[in-house]
């Protein structure tokens, strides 16, 4: 136990959970279970974020993805939850092509990831020497246009505003798209359809 580097252990734990449930999402047939697995995978990803020092992003991931996006997703699932849609099978051919193509992609990516020495990580002493820095205020200041962490880099005020407006537009648009359609024909009214 003495030689164990605990962050790595937690990395393995979270990364394993994330990957395992991502694979579970891929292979699950039931759409609701897929959503459930996805939640777990994303929550584990949030753990990875915490582990990498991005505690604010991790909290955002929990709150927005796990709390918001997936609620929306499940909501959609339920609106369309009829037996015939809950489990829709794909062709076996699709699976075969997919596995091969995806496997090739995975191999390429992993090979690329490990082919760069700078990404291999530091030794333990060096890693322990890294300062603990809080990220909330610098991120917030960055979003407000002041970079306290790296004064030579530009702030994100303008993208922040654009994203705000974008969100507003998107939400209005989504509400418009998803609004209940009125059935206007008198025949429908008469039959109570």
């Amino acid at each position: 136990m003495e030689g164990i580097y605990w962050p790595s252990v937690f990395f393995l734990l979270f990364g394993g959970i994330a990957c395992a449930f991502a694979v579970a999402v891929l292979f699950s047939k039931n759409i609701v279970r897929m959503a459930f697995y996805l939640v777990i995978s994303l929550a584990a990803t949030a753990g990875l974020f915490f582990l990498a020092g991005a505690d604010f992003v991790g909290a955002m991931q929990l709150m927005i993805y796990v709390g918001g996006t997936l609620v929306l997703l499940v909501f959609g699932v339920m609106l369309t939850s009829q037996e015939r849609f809950v489990e829709m099978k794909s062709d076996a051919g699709d699976w075969v092509i997919g596995i091969f193509a995806g496997g090739a992609l995975l191999v390429v990516l992993i090979w690329a990831a490990f082919s760069i020495p700078a990404w291999q990580g530091m030794d333990a002493a060096e890693a322990n020497a890294v300062a603990v820095k809080k990220t909330v205020t610098p991120i917030a200041m960055g979003l407000l246009g002041f970079r306290v962490d790296a004064p030579d880099r530009s702030g994100y005020f303008f993208p922040f505003e654009i994203v705000s407006v974008h969100l507003l537009v998107v939400l209005v648009g989504a509400a418009y798209l998803a609004r209940a359609k009125r059935k206007t024909t008198s025949a429908n009214l008469a039959t109570g359809d």
Partner: peptide, 17 residues
């Protein structure tokens, strides 16, 4: 849609290669 995605994946891999 799925074929498009598959095409994307395959072409990415081919580009890498």
């Amino acid at each position: 849609l799925r074929q498009y995605v598959m095409l994307l994946v395959i072409s990415t891999v081919l580009l890498f290669a």
